Amino acid sequence: MPDRITANLPAINFDATEAFYAPLGFTASWKDSGWMILRRGSLELEFFPFPDLDPFQSSFSACIRVDDLDALYADFSRAGVTNDRCAIPRLTPPLTEPFGLRLFALIDLNGSLLRCIDNKATERLTQRT
């Protein structure tokens, strides 16, 4: 197995979190009362219980870096997550930052921010430095 790092995010309720991520293409590869791991191909999210978390006060986040940002956004869009910028959960459309980084964001039902970042745009930025 190659070296890797995985996000560790809070879940108010494991069953509700698993149900939220299922339409996004994630399936549980491990789940007990103290830990849950969801996978979507090579993408992996790990969750710990945090039943008292207020999603509107959460400051948890992770970056998901992918080679095909548009395909991931299309897949996530089919899940029917709203793009209402005040809602939790929500999905924002892709955008390109003024400095060239291309990304979109998913805020899950626990209030965790997942920045989905285009690897190709990141590579172009690092080649400039």
Rank of each mutant, 00 (worst) to 15 (best):
Ala74Ile: 10
Met1Thr: 04
Pro94Leu: 08
Thr126Arg: 14
Ser33Ile: 08
Ile37Asn: 06
Cys116Gly: 04
Pro49Glu: 03
Asp15Leu: 12
Phe20Asn: 07
Ala22Trp: 05
Gln57Met: 14
Asn119Arg: 15
Ser77Cys: 15
Gly34Val: 14
Ala62Pro: 06
Arg4Thr: 13
Pro98Tyr: 03
Gln127Glu: 13
Gln127Phe: 01
Phe60Cys: 11
Gly100Gln: 07
Asp70Gly: 02
Ala105Trp: 09
Phe60Asn: 11
Leu109Gly: 08
Ser29Pro: 11
Ala22Asp: 05
Arg128Tyr: 11
Ile107Phe: 02
Phe76Trp: 07
Ala16Gly: 06
Asp54Asn: 14
Leu9Gln: 02
Cys116Ala: 03
Trp35Ser: 04
Ser33Met: 08
Ile107Trp: 00
Arg39Cys: 08
Ile37Phe: 00
Asp15Ile: 14
Phe60Thr: 10
Leu114Ala: 02
Trp35Gly: 02
Met36Glu: 06
Pro93Ile: 11
Leu101Cys: 10
Asp70Pro: 04
Ile5Lys: 06
Ala121Ser: 15
Asp3Met: 07
Glu44Ala: 07
Pro93His: 00
Ile117Trp: 03
Pro94Ser: 06
Ile12Pro: 13
Leu113Thr: 07
Thr27Leu: 13
Tyr73His: 08
Arg102Trp: 05
Arg115Ile: 14
Asn83Val: 05
Thr27Cys: 11
Leu103Glu: 10
Leu109Trp: 00
Leu95Trp: 13
Ile117Tyr: 01
Asn13Gln: 14
Ala74Glu: 10
Met36Gly: 04
Ala16Tyr: 00
Arg4Phe: 10
Ser59Thr: 14
Leu38Cys: 08
Lys120Asn: 13
Pro94Arg: 06
Phe26Ile: 03
Leu114Cys: 04
Ile88Asn: 13
Gly41Arg: 14
Lys120Ser: 12
Phe26Glu: 02
Ala121Lys: 09
Asp67Tyr: 09
Arg85Thr: 11
